[in-house]
Every structure is written in C-alpha cells, then in structure tokens.
Nucleic acid binder design. Structure first.
Lengths: 220, 220
DNA sequence: GACGAATTGGACAAGACTGTCCAAAAGTGA
DNA sequence: TCACTTTTGGACAGTCTTGTCCAATTCGTC
C-alpha cells in the first residue's frame, strides 16, 4: 500500500491548469478542515472550488491523494511561518521583557492562532490514529523539527546572562505553554489583538519571574 | 428541531434490559471516540456491544440521541473526577512544593490524561462547530464550571501567605498550563508514571519560582 | 480558424449507511 | 403453562458516497 508519505513525495509538475489545481487544493483544505476527512465529500470540494468533480480526479487523484496534498500544503506554509517568526527572537538587548512580549505576540498570532495551523493540528489529531505515518510525518516535519531551534534561542539568551536557565528545552516548552495559557481555545474562537497582547504580557511576566535574573525588575 | 441539550435532558427511566443499554452506550463511546461521529456506524456499535442493531433503535433512538447520551456520560464521569481531585488541593501546610507536586500528579493523571476526558475534548472539538449547543453545554457543564473552584483554591493559598498572587484566575490557568507543558500530547501516547512525576515537578518548580515567596527555598 | 488538451456535466455501478418493518425466537414473570 | 415483553436477524427503501466512463464543449496555442 502506498503511504501518505509516498503519496506526498512524488509530486509531478502540474499537468493541467495550475490555477484550477490551486483552487481545488484550497477548497479541499477548507472542506477537510470544516468537515473532517470522513465528512468531506468530493462533490462539496468540487462545488467549493467551482470545478467539476471529474477535474479533481484528473488533476490530483483519489481522496487520499487529495488529503495528503492538503496536509502537505498547510504543513509547508505553517512551517515556513514558524521559522520566519523564530528568526525574530530577541537577541541580547536592552529591554528583554518588552522584546519577549513582542516576540510572544508574533508567535501566537502567526503560529499558535493561525487558522490553518490549528486546523492541521486538528486534522492530524483526528486521522492520526487511522494513518499513523501521517502523524509521524507531521511530528518530524512540523513543529518537532523546530523545537530545537526554539530552545537554542533560549540557551543563547541564558549564555548571554539575560536569564537563568538550567534546561533550555524545558524552558522553551514552558514559555510556549505560558504564552498560550491565556488564549481562548474554543473551536471557532479567534483571539483579538488585545487578548493577544494581554496573554503575551501575562505569560512573559510569569516566565521572567521564574527565569529572569533575580535582581532585574520586570517592567510589565 | 430538538437540540442535543434537549435530547440529553429528557432521560426516561430505561425501558428494557438495563445491562444491554449500558453495553450499548459503552460500545458507542468506544466507537465514537475511535472513529468520530461521521465515521462511526450503528452496525459497528451494535457489533461492539454484542447487540442487534434494532435493539439500539429500541433502547436509545437515532444516532444523534446516542451521541448525546455518550457525551453526557463522559461529561458526568470526568466532571465528577475533577471535583473529587480538586478536593485534595493542599491546604496551608508545611511543605507546599511537595504537596503541590502531589496534587499536580493527581490532576494530570485523573483529569488531563484520562482517556475518556481527552476523547471527550476531541469529540467536542470536532463536532462543536457542527453542533454549537453541544460545545456550549460542555463549556458550561464541564471544566468551565470548575475553573472558579481552582482559582479559589489558589486565592485561599495566597491569603494564607504561602504564595504571592495578584490574579488567582490567571495563576490557576498558568498552573494548569505549566503542569501540562511537559506531558506527551500525541494522539495515542499515554504518559508513564515517571513522566507524570517529572512533568509535575518541572511545572510546580517554575510556578513556585514565579509565585512563591521570594525568601522560600524550593526543594525540588 | 484549426488542432489538441483540458474541462464539463451527466450517467453509471458498486457499496455503505440510516432508519423502518416484521416475523420468529428468546426471555420474564405469574 | 401461558401471556407479555424484548431481542434478533433479515429484508427493505432511500440516500449518499466514491470512482469510472464518455460525449460534448471550452480553452490555449499555433
């Protein structure tokens, strides 16, 4: 049996109309996210894309290939966004608290609260038990690949003497948990800009109370 | 249209064989959790329960009623477990750090890592957009009802002078986030006892570094 | 305009699912 | 034993799904 990995790997250059192919994948993303793998019907995707059902079969193939393509698309996009955001991690500087809050806001807005990224997590979580290789691929390719980068940033900050950290990996996990603790996580809810700022401030304040230098005042 | 709330509210005393009714609901729980609402078929549930399909229609009714019954069951069970665990929140005592870690272990093991509770969250998250009243009912009846109780515990601890907290509600959310930050959250993964202890220790240590009294040594 | 490729709409078979109906069988209690 | 309730298995109609096939039409390009 061909696995999702295989299906996602052999990408031939698109044969037909490229715009239609993109429309199909975009529509499939929306419908898969909305209805789940089981609930999504090819007809609904075709209608959403403004395309005949047959075109979907011509361009992509069956439902599994379409799903793999959708997962790969969101994965690439949200992974790129993560590394891009990660590049703005504050260096040794004047006001660490302020910079960390700014970074936390970018991180939550661009990655944690991104509709597609959340949808991908949900899809993986749902179909992960049925298609284990899908979950494995996501774990390796998605956030799993970027966790070391995050903790390396914190380690560098610790070496520079801005914070006191024993285990940078643990600190990174707790940082992520803290800045996400105050975010609304309901199914349809989306955080407002004020909520984003407040959550980032609250999370960073507690993080710096725990890991900041004892003599440093946290001006938040 | 009858809502899920209505469906779940009017519980008539069971008409037929009570054991079979329980077997049906248990099997339905397993299959709904495994396959989701769309993927679960009545035939699969009947087979899992060792019962004829017709019996399900006799005892409970259609698929929506069955799903509502399953959700209500897990909800009651996990909510009871939560209040039971919450009752063991440490009072003013000698070794706060140790007691908080013990409490965190109980909380993660009994509530956060409980298979049924996690499955309920997943089900709600999936079908929540399709049946909003289902999500609202869960939010009010489930953890939402018990959040104030948690923060009240932290507020009492703060009044007793054991910790320094401005916003008990925020502290409670961050406590939960911290003790859950170090737990494996993959689809099929279940945390070992060692992981539970380690995660609780790490979370409580950071929590107390941020909120504990400045002069207190944290012996973890 | 003309040619080849892509797209479209519809028809189609095969299968799965829900929910109903019913007669036969099994269980239950007096 | 007898009457009553419940369960069972199967049949059934109706709907929805996927994936294929095909003729007609449109599109892109020369």
């Amino acid at each position: 049996m061909e696995t999702f990995l295989d299906l996602a790997r052999d990408r031939v250059p698109p044969k037909g109309n490229y715009n239609k192919r993109c429309a199909i994948i975009a529509a499939a993303t929306a419908v898969f996210v909305r209805d789940g793998y089981m609930g999504a019907s090819i007809d609904a995707i075709a209608e959403e894309a403004g395309v005949s059902r047959q075109t979907i079969y011509n361009q992509i193939g069956d439902k599994e290939k379409l799903f793999a393509e959708v997962v790969r698309g969101i994965n690439e996009q949200s992974s790129a966004m993560l590394v891009e955001t990660l590049a703005t991690f504050p260096e040794h500087c004047g006001d660490l608290a302020r910079d960390l809050v700014e970074f936390a806001i970018r991180l939550t807005r661009n990655c944690l609260c991104d509709a597609n990224a959340r949808a991908l997590r949900k899809l993986i979580e749902n179909e992960g038990t049925r298609y284990p290789e899908l979950f494995e691929a996501w774990k390796d390719y998605g956030p799993g690949k970027n966790w070391p980068a995050i903790s390396a940033r914190f380690a560098r900050l610790a070496r520079a003497g801005d914070i006191e950290i024993d285990d940078p990996d643990l600190a990174a996990r707790q940082f992520m948990a803290l800045i996400g603790a105050d975010l609304p996580n309901g199914p349809g809810e989306r955080a407002s800009e004020e909520q984003l700022q407040s959550a980032a401030r609250n999370g960073v304040r507690t993080f710096l109370r725990a890991y900041g230098k004892r003599d440093a005042a946290i001006g938040l």
